[in-house]
Simulated scan of single mutants.
Amino acid sequence: MKNEIEDWEENVQMLTDSIGAVVPPDGSVSRVRKARHVGAGFDTNIWHTMAEMGWLAITLDETCGGLGLGLREATALLKGLGKGLTPEPITPAIMALRLMADAGEKILIDEALSGEKIILAAWQATPDSVDPSAGVSIKDALLYGKKISIEGGLAAHAFVVTTPHGICIVPKDSKGLTIKSTPMHDGTFTTQLIFEGVKTSSLACTNMERSLFEAQLMHCAYLLGVSERAFEITLAYLRLRKQFGVAIGSFQALQHRSTEIKIQLELARASIAAAAGAIDTGKSHRHCQMNAHRASTRVKMLTRLVAREAVQMHGAIGYTDEADIGLYVRKAMTSVGLYGPEYRLRENYMALREIQV
């Protein structure tokens, strides 16, 4: 047990150190600013760097060319990327690889791991949906329906579409596929896929739900990173800004509000750690899913709290485009609703809790 614990902790440290290849140690977000509203909303050169670092392969089994690491390592990586507002769509890419591996698709996995092709998961049917099989149907080998909210979809070469029968791999230039882009407030883009008789074949995939709640957990680790950095910037401002001759951070009312954020941050960290640990140590599917839903709900609530308080404590400057905190607020606003709203996750958690085992 000791060696196992030491192994994953050592892996987390190495991954944390490697994040400096993409996220500047000084906290600069100048690269993120330059990528906003340009092209697909992220830098494909950075994408190749991520592929070379092995980040896309982090949870993929070694037999498929992956690193074979767990969710504890993956969430540590995503938290670090969240601190730097990294716009590259790594979570849907990791999810797509997991789905393809489960379905036995080897060739595209190799192309995705090399960075040669960007392949993203398309799983969500409606903004409040957490059912990966919803939104599409297959009739006579033709795919109909739609999927929404695919991060980075403008740069994708293909999509892994979840269906009631498994997965379909749909190239971006497929006949009958319409790709609609939506510019987001943080400078990135999401895409909606409309399938009108797209010729395809379905691959059996038994772990769609697991792939989804693992992606939900990685996404909430990213949000935790966004929240942590936003709080750090806010605390620095409270020490700097003065009123009545003293730093506003000395005001008791702001200290109490800051303390509440600190408490919620610690609870969020603990929730993610518990959920990731449950998955990595082989707990039951139900137990892992419940922990992932609980962590996602808590982190989404935290993200809204930190964004709201950051604007309140900074004043009007907190929402300006020039201030770094404004970028974090925008990222929080656009990303918190992805991978399911809090109320739907709570509903699913309670439904799972009621199941007699």
Rank of each mutant, 00 (worst) to 15 (best):
T206I: 06
T281V: 08
F231M: 12
S258G: 04
V12M: 14
E4M: 09
A21L: 09
A316P: 15
L120Q: 05
I46E: 09
I94F: 10
K180D: 15
C64L: 15
V22F: 03
A74Y: 09
L203K: 13
D186G: 02
H157M: 13
L254M: 01
A121W: 02
M301R: 15
V246M: 05
G65D: 12
K83N: 05
A121I: 01
S296Y: 11
N11V: 08
L223A: 00
I167F: 09
L77G: 02
E52K: 02
G249R: 00
T188V: 00
R344Y: 14
I58Q: 07
A76S: 11
R294L: 12
A40M: 03
A351S: 15
I248A: 01
P24T: 02
V226Y: 00
M1L: 10
W8T: 10
V38T: 06
R229L: 00
T320Y: 04
Q264F: 14
E10N: 14
C168R: 04
T162D: 14
A276C: 06
P341S: 12
R346A: 03
Q216C: 10
V22D: 04
S28A: 05
E111W: 03
V38F: 05
G282L: 02
S30Q: 09
E4H: 10
A332Y: 03
M350R: 15
G145R: 06
L217R: 07
R31L: 01
S149Q: 08
N207M: 04
G135S: 09
L77T: 01
L238W: 03
K180G: 14
F251R: 10
R344I: 14
L120G: 05
A93Y: 04
R346T: 03
D110N: 02
I19W: 10
C220G: 06
D110I: 01
W55C: 08
K242V: 00
K283V: 07
S201A: 13
L99M: 03
A295Y: 06
R298D: 15
L338T: 03
E73F: 12
R308C: 09
K146Y: 13
T281D: 15
I118T: 12
C168T: 08
R72T: 10
A35S: 05
A158E: 13
T75Y: 13
P171T: 06
Y343F: 13
F251D: 09
A103L: 11
E6Q: 15
G282E: 06
A204W: 06
T44I: 02
R98G: 14
K172L: 11
A158N: 11
A101W: 12
K300N: 06
S18A: 15
N348V: 00
M290R: 12
S201Y: 14
R33A: 00
V336I: 11
N45Y: 05
A57W: 09
S227N: 09
Q264L: 14
G197M: 01
P89R: 03
G166L: 10
G84M: 00
E266V: 03
P171V: 04
D173N: 14
G245W: 01
L15K: 01
E209Y: 12
D280Q: 01
L224M: 08
A134R: 14
D131H: 10
D26F: 07
V32Q: 00
T91W: 04
W123H: 12
A156N: 03
Y319H: 10
R72D: 12
M14F: 11
F251P: 13
M218N: 07
S296P: 13
G249N: 00
